[in-house]
Design a protein around this nucleic acid. Structure first.
Lengths: 186, 186
DNA sequence: GTTTGTCAACCAACCAGTTAGTTGCTAATG
DNA sequence: CATTAGCAACTAACTGGTTGGTTGACAAAC
């Protein structure tokens, strides 16, 4: 106890879980403080208010994600597979991103995402210039396609009930195969 | 005034807009009643409570969607294009579906979706049996892929800033082309 | 007169954010 | 070493406003 850094970390962890599960409007500040085993006033001291707490949570989440899954322009199917793995293992990242998109329509751009996108686009552009990557799609189009395909299973409505019927390895296989097909030279 | 059916319809329309924009937790019952030009009491009389109002809104939304965009197993790229058009023209449907998935984790299955999926899967299966559709992917896999690709632009983070830079026809073209590539016989 | 639709006012619970006061650590002082 | 002043970490209790949901009085239609 009485360790500011540690308290801050516990609050952030609790907030990540709460926001990922319930979103901004659904999250309860009291629940976060309780889960972190400390008082609400600490939360306001360290993070200002609910909204900026979410911003911090989301920023850190994106930061971790970018570090964990660097783009590999010379093996996009493999890159898509790694994205899939990451979304399977840490679904909070994706949930936070979706909450952010839905609940912050006019929200300013998150610098972490802007930078990550620039880096990715540059890599893809270079790979195309070097001839190691098909030019059928532009870098932007590729990014959009890979992003959506790697999250395809996670964003499918539960009524398809696939999470139980199809094993993870098979779902991963689809993601990798689809991206391979898209960038295949004909 | 004094038209029960009309009042109900106005409430439903207002609720659709409110829920699509703010989700279940973020929606405000008073705002819905105000926007419908009637009193909160009517809302509770017709729909019971906030949650079941959302259920009604979502069910009707899915129903309309299914009627508007019937599956065409013999022209999946065209089908994906029509899905894309529908998501562009009436984004509420997709937003409601996402809110539903996020805020109703343990929610029972929506019968409208279950039925629609069965129909779609059957069509795809039949097309494969008849030989008019590639068997590279299973019907389920095809459905998941088409779904995710047709919503790719709508679910991309705003930081790519594509909504302004790329014209709609070009974004549509990507969706159609990607599906065409996926089901092409090699 | 009875049924049905409408509404303002109301309520208890809840919620984000604040405040005034307490606790425990540390380091300067003697 | 013992005392204590200062300060950051922490807390319980409170506040002002909001929210989902209800009620009872009234009005229109039949």
């Amino acid at each position: 106890m009485r360790d500011a850094e540690e308290t801050r970390r516990r609050l952030l962890a609790a907030a990540t879980e709460e926001f990922a599960e319930r979103g901004i409007a659904g999250a309860r500040v009291d629940r976060i403080a309780d889960a972190a085993g400390c008082n609400k006033a600490m939360l306001y001291k360290y993070f200002g208010n609910k909204d900026s707490l979410f911003d911090t949570v989301f920023g850190e989440s994106v930061g971790r994600f970018v570090l964990d899954v660097p783009v590999d322009a010379d093996d996009l199917p493999g890159y898509a597979g790694k994205l899939f793995d990451r979304y399977e293992e840490q679904p909070e990242t994706l949930r936070l991103a979706i909450w952010h998109r839905l609940e912050r329509p006019d929200g300013k751009w998150v610098t972490e995402i802007v930078l990550a996108n620039e880096v990715r686009l540059n890599y893809l552009q270079r790979a195309q210039d070097e001839g190691s990557l098909s030019k059928h799609y532009t870098p932007l189009e590729l990014l959009v396609l890979i992003q959506s395909i790697s999250t395809a299973w996670a964003t499918t409505n539960s009524e398809l009930g696939v999470r139980t019927t199809l094993p993870r390895e098979q779902r991963r296989g689809l993601v990798v195969d689809a991206v391979r097909r898209l960038i295949a030279e004909d």
